[in-house]
């Protein structure tokens, strides 16, 4: 069934399969906003990131929890200077991002991690934004619009969406229902919901009906394309340390 562009749902109806090859997609363009799942590269989609690098697109606005590591996950896009604006909570593990920022080549907008996650969730849930008090009394509140609800002050944080969301998952079916793997879930379910177009890179693609409806984390309605992962193509820091 896989590779076929429709799937039998068992009642004689056909459902369009979202499983495809990256080479069939034409969504990439310069100046686009890309939201990438993952946390320190864990749960970032390696094959999709490689495809974006190969496409040669530039001037990307990248929305991601962090800048990964220079050779891991979305960090590669930063290292290769494809990113002009980065919206993240942390870039400490990618010195290249810090260097580019200080040279004025990379524009970085920082948000507290929980606030960033919730801004992405709001985008995926069709909300205009969130009210949050994390960072009041610090530089985080500079320039932020504020409001008072039930006597408490909050910042108004607009929601985030993207032209393209890219996520990694453990299992996907051809409708785009997704299951994740342990702590590699992290920002992926949020990112998957917030893209105008969402590509899910799956370690395994299964038939419709194989995933337990009670267990599905991301519903297929949020996902546009499912591709088979070629697997992680980088070494983790702890692997490099172990190898000396």
């Amino acid at each position: 069934m896989l590779g076929v562009r429709s799937a039998d749902d068992g009642r004689g109806l056909t459902m369009r399969s979202k499983v495809c090859k990256l080479s069939e997609l034409t969504v990439l363009k310069d100046n686009m906003t890309i939201m990438c799942g993952g946390f320190g590269g864990v749960g970032s989609p390696p094959s999709v990131i490689e495809w974006i690098l190969d496409s040669g697109i530039k001037n990307i606005t990248l929305i991601c929890n962090d800048a990964g590591f220079p050779w891991i996950g979305p960090g590669k896009l930063v290292t290769e200077k494809r990113v002009s604006t980065l919206i993240a909570s942390h870039i400490g593990s990618n010195p290249e991002a810090g260097k580019q920022m200080h040279r004025g080549e990379l524009n970085v907008h920082f948000y507290p991690q929980g606030t960033l996650a919730e801004k992405i969730r709001a985008g995926g849930m069709g909300l205009g934004g969130i009210l949050v008090d994390v960072g009041l009394g610090t530089s985080v509140e500079e320039g932020k619009e504020k409001t008072v609800v039930h006597g408490k002050e909050y910042m108004i944080e607009p929601a985030l969406t993207a032209d393209l969301s890219i996520v990694a998952c453990k299992q996907a079916d051809c409708f785009g229902n997704l299951l994740y793997d342990q702590s590699a879930r992290n920002t992926n379910p949020l990112v998957a919901q917030a893209g105008d177009v969402t590509i899910a890179e799956a370690a395994e693609i299964v038939e419709i009906g194989e995933l337990d409806p009670e267990q599905i984390i991301t519903q297929g309605v949020f996902v546009d394309h499912v591709i088979k992962s070629k697997g992680v193509d980088w070494k983790w820091v702890w692997e490099l340390k172990r190898e000396g």
Partner: peptide, 25 residues
Amino acid sequence: EDGNLSNAGGYPVTIQPGASFFDSA
């Protein structure tokens, strides 16, 4: 070690009985 089971610093960890996984939000 499991590349998909790590702490916030990216280093491999294990889980205790009764543990759960969830998204960053």
